[in-house]
């Protein structure tokens, strides 16, 4: 991989430079990016790309565009289901931990006696459910919270050390005032020429080939 040639930051000049680079075809193609100038345009484009049957595509916008996820046909997340089982794991773990440590009594290889913390507290039985509930509650909440954060990061494909779209200097304006739709080469329907022609029909400002 050759070091990217430094490009001037000024947008008008970089636009000029990009036309030069685009003439050399990218060998390791990751996807085709179409750049739009308004939220309405990308909203429109997203629903057209979706109805054209593409599944591996994403939109990169400088601020939340309301309804864009619906236009893209993004499915409702599976995260709550994962969190439910995460929470249940916490409950089970708490029950196991407390029953085990409170009532443990065994002989390892019939030689080493192992006894748990068998403390009698105010005459209650060693295994008394009401005393276990606070820990069950706390561990349920803890594991639910950790599963939520961890699951969210995982479902967002983190850790992701770099994203191909950030590699391209031509995509810098997605953090400012441009709206970019990328169809990935991994899409089963993707074909370099056909997809490019299709994107051209959406009337973007320009189309950029992204290197993996």
């Amino acid at each position: 991989m050759s070091a990217p040639t430094p490009e001037p930051i000024a947008m008008s000049q970089s636009d000029h430079a990009s036309n030069q680079v685009a003439s050399e075809p990218v060998t390791d193609l990751w996807g085709l990016a179409a750049q739009f100038t308004t939220p309405a345009a990308i909203y429109d484009a997203a629903s057209k790309v979706r109805s054209a049957g593409y599944r591996w595509f994403d939109c990169h916008v400088p601020f939340p565009v309301h309804g864009l996820d619906k236009a893209m046909g993004v499915q409702y997340t599976i995260l709550p289901v994962i969190v439910f089982f995460g929470g249940m794991t916490g409950t089970m773990l708490a029950i196991f931990l407390q029953v085990f440590t409170n009532s443990l009594e065994l002989n390892l290889w019939a030689i080493v006696p192992v006894v748990g913390y068998q403390f009698e507290v105010s005459g209650k039985p060693l295994i008394s459910a009401p005393a276990f509930v606070p820990v069950m509650f706390e561990l349920t909440v803890l594991l639910s919270a950790l599963t939520t954060v961890g699951g969210m990061l995982f479902l967002n494909k983190l850790p992701c050390l770099y994203h191909p779209i950030l590699k391209s200097r031509k995509m810098k304006r997605i953090t400012d005032d441009r709206f970019v739709l990328v169809i990935e080469a991994a899409d089963p329907q993707f074909s370099r020429s056909k997809t490019e022609a299709f994107l051209e029909s959406l009337d973007p400002e320009r189309i950029v080939e992204l290197e993996a």
Partner: peptide, 15 residues
């Protein structure tokens, strides 16, 4: 449930 249990547990523990 949180409040109902909290009330029960305090009374149950102190006995």
């Amino acid at each position: 449930a949180y409040i109902g249990y909290s009330q029960y547990m305090l009374i149950w523990y102190a006995n």
